[in-house]
Every structure is written in structure tokens, then in C-alpha cells.
Write a protein that binds this DNA or RNA. Structure first.
Lengths: 229, 229
DNA sequence: TTATTCCCTACCCAAATGGCTAGGTTGCCA
DNA sequence: TGGCAACCTAGCCATTTGGGTAGGGAATAA
């Protein structure tokens, strides 16, 4: 993994050498082709690899050491895996910028992604072509890019003294997923080999974190946040 | 416009007149560009218009009278609107085939879409380029196309004597949405100006339709089916 | 007309939930 | 060593819920 010696080029006017090399990770072909088409209409941007799985992203970045990785965090059934990938890439390849391209706008995911090294967060919905292109350019220039709606969401999240968007623990997620399947606390306790009290304990904690007072609301918020399949 | 004297060329086996004209409706640019790119790699297929809103679809079909309309039912906050559009197009333009390209696989939506005149239902996730192309060709040839997983889902739905996937009524949806916000039956009753009994009545009915036994599960299923925002 | 669908209401009772206090054990990091 | 986070458990009690039964009315389609 040789960190290829990149020449000092001025980014104002792009010389042919200044090609921004991009890896696109999305499980959806249509989206991958779409991103590629939009970006490559632009001289100076090249999509050098596509990935559809969590493992493939790592491989692709290992192989190409791109300038930017564009990733949809939801590459499998475990969204949190996408977050750890951000962390890993940001850690091992500081030169590779990360642009998260999400389907849904979730405060939880946004702040987590940024905290773990993402340089931008755009929402596919309502995204315009030039917003994508400009976003890529801005990130390449070292900016942090937050799409429409995302910025205010983060500001709101950061503004509140108490950080509501704490992350849920594994057990809490397990319990929420069980609830979403319609199980009662007793059933969940049995299934997870813990007492009913513990189930209630996890629910209470998760509820505080997601600011809900009813399990149905809890499920809905977790679902909207993309935390459960 | 002079009728440009096109020489008789043989493009594979397709004559130039056999171009399949397509309207693509999706709120997401990336997806629209992706679909266009994939399809237009193929001689004989042309995307003649794109639409991003429910109204724009109608206009586009009115204007172009395409062979196929490819549509993501979720073009706004009201998914059911997408279904009525299928109905309207199928009714007014019987020659225009409808291919639904959905994000999520929902039994409810699938059967409704087919019932209202859709000729195909593909799921963006896991869809391969050639599946899209072949699907378009098959539909053009008059076939009905159901993507992987979709077919068995429909078969299952049709196989069961009692049609579980009944559609929810407006009130039922209202109640479910309220539940997802964490309201109690009493609060919902107050908000909707009905009695608590009625709230429970709607919940019971919706639960039977969606085959749930707990309101949390109800919310999750409705959410997964794309019935609530 | 009759049937159907949607909407509304009431009553019952067992079970589940929410909200709380008050502990315990690990294991990890400073 | 102490603090902290995640995990586990117990008990209490008011409220909510699920799941029935048993009716109404209105509008619409057959």
C-alpha cells in the first residue's frame, strides 16, 4: 500500500494531473452508475472502483487509495458496520476523504459518521447533480460538506446541551429489534436468556436515548434512523 | 424537421423504428441518471423524459406517450398517490406499460400496484443491470416481470385463501401514524376527536390486516411497507 | 333492495407496559 | 485505585394494552 507521492498541483485550475480519484460504495447498481455518470461528466473526476459490500470497500480503498470514498452506509443488514468502516478508512488512509451518501436523514447516523471521520454527508433524496459535484469538489478542497437539512440537524444536535443522540448499545438494539417483531418483554427475556427486568432496563435506557416514551415510538425512531432492518 | 432519410441499417436485429421510448419517474437524480445510463447503453431504448413529482409524471406521459413508464411509487410523502397514478396511466394509456421500481419490497404495495395496472415490479436493491434491461424488454414484449423475491411474495399472497394484504383505510393509517409518535389510545382519541374505543377498533382492524399482535410490531410493519413516513 | 365497507361506540378482563427506586457484576481505562 | 460503561436483577404500582363481544350509522356498489 504505497502512499503514492502526489505532486503538488494547484487546485484552482485543474491540470489534467489533478484528477480526483473516487471509489463508490453502494449496494445498488443504479445508484452506482448514476453517481459515476454524474461525476464523470466532469473532467477532473474519475470513478476508479465500485464496491457493493463492506469487505469490498476496504479492498477497493486498499487497492486504489482514492482521493474520495463515496459510501452509502447501508451496505448490508448491519448499518453500524458502515460506521466502523468510516472509522477504519479515516484511520488508515487520512488522505482519503469520506463522503457519506445516505438514503435517510438520521441525526444519530450523521453525528456518528462525522465523529468517525466522514468529511461530508449528503442525502440522496432531493439531491441535485451539481450539489453532488460541488460537494465532491469542496470535500476534495478540504471542506466539510453537509447537505440541505443535514447542517441544521447537526447544529440542533450539537446545540442541545445534553447530547440526546447517544448511541445505543448492542443489547439495546437487540431488544428494540425484538420489540419490532411484536414480542412481549417476557418473550424477549426468554429469547435473550435474561430476566424480564433486564429487558425493561434496556428499553428504559434506549427510550431515554431516543427520547421516546412508548415502545412503538421507540421502534419507529430506530427504524427511521436506520438502526433496525 | 425534415424526415431525415435514415438508411436501412441493421442494428443487430432491431430496426431503427423499434426504439422503446421510456419515461422515468424518480425523485432521486442519481437514480434517474443511473437508469438512463444503463438503459441507453442499449441500442433500441431511449429515455425520452424524466419526472420527479406525481404531477410531472402525468404531464410527461401526456406529452410523450411512451412505450414504458418506469416509476418509483414513492415520489412524495403520499405513497398511495403513486398507486393511483398507475391506475390513471393504465386507464388512459393502455399502450403504455408500467414498470414499478421500488426501494422496498412490500407485499402490500406489490399486489396493489399489479392490481392497478403495473406490468412489472422490480426492487432497486440487489437489482443487476441486465435484469433491468431484460425486464424492460420483457415488458415491452407484453410479459409481466416480477423481480427476484417479488414473485414468490406475490405467489404467497395469492396462495393464501384469505387475502392478508388488504389495504389499510385512511383512519387506520392515521391511527398507526399517531401510534408511531408514541401517543396512547387516549391521546389519539382526543387528537382525532373520536372515542378511545374507536381508536382500539381501528388498531384491531389494522393489526389483523398486517398480521400483528402488538402496536410496536404494527408500526414496524407499516414502516417497512412504506405506509408511514 | 341488499350487501359491503368504513366509520363510530361501549363494556369487560387479563396481561403487558412505563416509570420508578435500589441494588449487583464485570471489564476497561486513567 | 477509582471511576465509568455496559450489563444484569428485583420489586412496586398506576396506566395502557390486547382481545374479545355487541351493537350503531352512512355511503356506496351490486
Amino acid at each position: 500500500m504505497g502512499p503514492d507521492p502526489r505532486p503538488e498541483v494547484s487546485l484552482g485550475r485543474r491540470s489534467p494531473m489533478a484528477t480526483t480519484r473516487i471509489v463508490v460504495a453502494d449496494r445498488n447498481v443504479i445508484t452506482r452508475v448514476g453517481i459515476r455518470s454524474i461525476l464523470e461528466r466532469n473532467a477532473g473526476i474519475a470513478v476508479v472502483a465500485e464496491a457493493t459490500t463492506y469487505d469490498a470497500v476496504i479492498d477497493a480503498v486498499d487497492e486504489h487509495g482514492p482521493d474520495i470514498m463515496i459510501i452509502d452506509l447501508d451496505l448490508g443488514d448491519d448499518t453500524t458496520r458502515g460506521l466502523t468502516i468510516c472509522e477504519e478508512i479515516a484511520d488508515r488512509y487520512p488522505a482519503t476523504k469520506i463522503l457519506v451518501l445516505a438514503n435517510t436523514l438520521s441525526e444519530l447516523i450523521v453525528v456518528e459518521a462525522l465523529r468517525r471521520g466522514a468529511n461530508g454527508y449528503l442525502c440522496k433524496n432531493d439531491l441535485k447533480s451539481d450539489e453532488l459535484i460541488n460537494g465532491v469538489k469542496a470535500i476534495q478542497d478540504g471542506d466539510t460538506v453537509l447537505g440541505r437539512g443535514v447542517g441544521s440537524l447537526v447544529a440542533k444536535g450539537l446545540g442541545s446541551t445534553r447530547d440526546k443522540a447517544e448511541r445505543l448499545t448492542d443489547r439495546e438494539l437487540d431488544v428494540i429489534r425484538a420489540i419490532s417483531r411484536g414480542l412481549s418483554n417476557k418473550q424477549i427475556a426468554h429469547e435473550m436468556f435474561i430476566s424480564e427486568s433486564t429487558v425493561k432496563f434496556h428499553i428504559q435506557n434506549a427510550s431515554k436515548k431516543l427520547n421516546s416514551h412508548r415502545r412503538a415510538e421507540l421502534v419507529h425512531r430506530a427504524s427511521a434512523a436506520g438502526l433496525i432492518n
